[in-house]
């Protein structure tokens, strides 16, 4: 199968510090890829390279190639188009201080003129896909900040879905949530896999095991091991991977 994103010889710098070293992997389409590793290993940085959110930080620089739909995202692709196609869910739920409806409608309204009726349809569909519709259908006009943390995070996912991304980046999306909300999000990730590639950064080994098809283990800015989750968890090739997974460090 054609990969969703191809990364070739990626180096990434924060000023003089090399934060990612020579990373070359293919991210498969319609699969969940988990990025694991200890704090500061570069997994979040890697994630933010993929939708160029690191561009907002002064003094960052990349080398190498990242191909999305055969296009180098740092050279030949319009930044806004890239971010529309590669959505992102953040660690802390960050709904806009607007109504539930306007949160979802925000993305579609950015990119084109759109009729109210079509917009209603997109909002409903996105909320249903994020399994939030039943909980918010009667409070579309109330503030999104009044939702619970878990609902807010699913709202953020729905907000991404509304612009029809091809890839969904998730940066520890459940680390600020309670176990029940976490379970709902994990369920959601499994459902959404059919529609696009999902890349999820997680600190939680069990979570990576439960929801991902592929896993990449990061250490000190390098990918130590990358492969099918089952293989990585049961028969890690590298000693360091084994140590991390069995909880000997990290």
């Amino acid at each position: 199968m054609k990969p969703a994103i191809t990364i070739k010889n990626l180096n990434f710098y924060y000023r003089q510090v090399m934060a990612l070293k020579n990373i070359s992997i293919d991210i498969p389409a319609n699969r969940v890829t988990a990025l694991i590793g200890p704090s500061g290993c570069g997994k979040s940085t890697f994630l933010r390279v993929l939708n160029r959110m690191n561009d907002l930080i002064e003094g960052t620089r990349i080398e190498g190639k990242i191909l999305f739909n055969d296009t180098n995202i740092y050279k030949d692709m319009d930044l806004m188009k890239l971010r529309k196609k590669v959505g992102m869910v953040f660690q802390k739920p960050n709904p806009f201080p607007m109504s539930v409806y306007n949160n979802i409608a925000y993305g579609p309204r950015l990119h084109r003129k759109i009729s109210d009726k079509e917009l209603d349809g997109i909002v409903e569909k996105s909320l249903k896909s994020a399994s939030l519709w039943d909980e918010v259908r009667d409070r579309m006009e109330s503030s999104a900040l009044g939702l619970s943390g878990g609902q807010q995070q699913r709202l953020c996912i729905a907000r991404c879905l509304a612009v029809q991304p091809e890839v969904l980046l998730m940066d520890e999306p459940t680390s600020a949530l309670d176990p029940v909300s976490t379970a709902k999000i994990e369920e959601l990730v499994k459902d959404l896999r059919d529609k696009f590639a999902i890349i999820i950064v997680t600190h939680n080994m069990q979570q990576a095991g439960r929801i991902s098809d592929y896993t990449a283990f990061f250490l000190n800015g390098e990918i130590v091991e990358y492969g099918a989750t089952r293989e990585i968890f049961h028969r890690p090739v590298d000693k360091r991977t084994e140590d991390y997974i069995t909880g000997r460090f990290g």
Binding site: M53, K84, G87, F90, N94, F96, L110, C156, V163
Partner: peptide
């Protein structure tokens, strides 16, 4: 909060759209 700015930009909004709408 910077979160709002990131959320907007990550949805493909331009800087100007983010200022105006969020």
């Amino acid at each position: 909060p910077g979160d709002y700015r990131s959320a907007s930009l990550a949805l493909g909004a331009s800087h100007w759209q983010t200022i105006l709408r969020v």
